[in-house]
Write a protein that binds this DNA or RNA. Structure first.
Lengths: 154, 154
DNA sequence: ACAGAACACTTGACATGTCAACTATTGATC
DNA sequence: GATCAATAGTTGACATGTCAAGTGTTCTGT
């Protein structure tokens, strides 16, 4: 019996290898997401919120329009709008309608947001490293290549 | 530049290999989840609801208590209760307080639920297979083992 | 047998993900 | 240069995920 089969207490074997891979992928990602999420808890931000902060740091001075943030997160516009609403309320993000194209809304980190994301670099790095530490460097490399291949096929 | 780095339009390289693996894992799982979810859309149930139906089919006649369903899904109790609420409303699941231990609530598929989950076997299998079809059988095996190892390390 | 801990949920509050519909701008065309 | 399509976002409705607190039930120890 496969480890995964035991995990989900299923008597029947998986109907196909593909099915088992898909279930393993989703369960593993959920697990890792929770591990990283726990690091952010004390700072009162969620994984998605941290993601936005990190993306905005990458954008720097010129800021980023709302939808561009969504693109980098594979997330739809409605979610991004509300994510930004909360970050703005917390004083971590600043928004302003773009003068050149008034349809767009540009977003930046506030100084507080920049400070927070800097402070989180080290703990998040550690959590990420720990989350996959049971794999050696070569296995991490292998896993990464396999995952890249799956995404490339879509 | 790594494929992932290009995907998320980040100029900076990842701060660590672990970070890149974690991001790849989460993004790949989200993608696969959406691919499978699209198959279920026409039947008006979500991936999580389908999951519950599949678990209940595995349980058969004797049914399953609510929390046991949650265990098999890695999900907390509150979510399971409400998931079951909706499935019951749709007439796919039946619930009844267990006479032996009145704290528990046992759950079964209704005939309609059983029929639906049977009908979904084939399309879901195909979607799962397609989702990882770009990997050959040996690579699927390799990916599966690496994911199992990550989960085992927690 | 009775008090208190442990258990199995349930409910409420809030963050997020998804879709559809709507608003405001901008661009494209005749 | 007025009209219509395309863009960029926002808003509403609903499914789900998380935590904390509340409700019955059962178990444990004395």
């Amino acid at each position: 019996m496969s480890p995964l089969q035991r995990e989900i207490r299923q008597g029947k074997p998986f109907r196909s290898r593909g099915q088992e891979v898909v279930v393993a992928l989703i369960r593993t990602a959920d697990l890792v997401r929770r591990v990283v999420g726990r690091v952010l808890e004390p700072y009162d931000i969620t994984v998605q919120q941290y993601n936005v902060l990190r993306i905005l740091r990458g954008a720097g001075e010129q800021g980023l329009p709302t939808l561009e943030i969504g693109l980098r997160m594979v997330e739809h516009a409605p979610g991004v709008t509300r994510l930004l609403d909360r970050l703005e309320t917390k004083g971590l993000v600043r928004r302003q309608r773009c003068p050149e194209d008034r349809r767009q809304v540009l977003c930046w980190l506030t100084p507080a947001g920049a400070e927070l994301v800097e402070k989180l670099d080290e703990p998040v790095d550690s959590a990420d490293a720990e989350a996959v530490a049971m794999l050696g460097p070569e296995d991490q490399e292998r896993l990464l290549r396999l995952l890249d291949a799956v995404r490339a096929g879509h």
